[in-house]
Amino acid sequence: MKFDKEQLQMVLALFVVAVIAATLLGLTDIFTRGPIAAAEKEALHSALAQVLPAHANDAQADMFVIGREKQALSIYPGKDKAGRLNGFAWEVTAPDGYAGSIRILVGLYPDGKIHAIRVTGHKETPGLGDGIVNNAGWLAAFAGQELDSRNWKVKKDGGDFDQFTGATITPRAVVKAVKGALAFFASKRELMLAAVAEEKEQP
C-alpha cells in the first residue's frame, strides 16, 4: 500500500499527539499513585474509626481475608488496648441501589450486634437517596440491632426501617445488604474469631 505525503502527515501528527498524551498520563500516574493510595487509606481509616467500637489497634494493618478468590472478603478487626477483640468491620455491596451499587461499611461487636454503618460509595440522587449518607437519625436506627432484633425491611414493605420521602429503593437496598452482612456474620462467626485468634499466635 502506498501513502501520499498528506496521509503520512496526518498519521504522523496523530501519532505524535498520542505519544505526548500517553507520556503525560504516565508521568501523572507516577506522581499521583502514592498520594491516591494514601488518600484512600485515610478515607478508609476515618470510615473505620466511625463504624468500629473504640479501638486501639490499626484495623487496616490487622486486616485478614476470609474466603477465597471471588468470595474473598477483607475483614478489619478492632482491638482494645489489651489486644482483646472488640469489633469487626467489612464492606458489603448493595447491588440494587437506585443508581448502581451502594458500598456500605458495616461495623459489628463480636456478639453480632451492630455498632454503626457508614455508606462509603454510592451514586444515589442528591437530596433523595443520599439520606443514607447524611441522615444521622436514619443511620442511628441500625446501632445496637442484631439479626433477630428487627424486621429487616423498610416500613413500606412491613419492616422496621424508615424509607425516605421520594426514595424507597435506596434505603431498601441498604437494609437488605446490612441484613445480608448480619446473616453472613452469623454463619462465619466461628471462622472470624478463629482467624483473629490465629493472628495473635503468629505475630
Binding site: A21, L24, F31
Partner: peptide, 22 residues
C-alpha cells in the same frame, strides 16, 4: 488531535483531584 489533548488533560486533572482532594 484536539480530543486526545483534552482527554489527556481531563484525566490528569481527575488523577490530581483524586490524589490531593480525595
Amino acid at each position: 488531535a484536539y480530543i486526545t489533548i483534552i482527554a489527556a488533560f481531563v484525566t490528569i486533572v481527575g488523577m490530581a483531584m483524586n490524589a490531593w482532594m480525595h
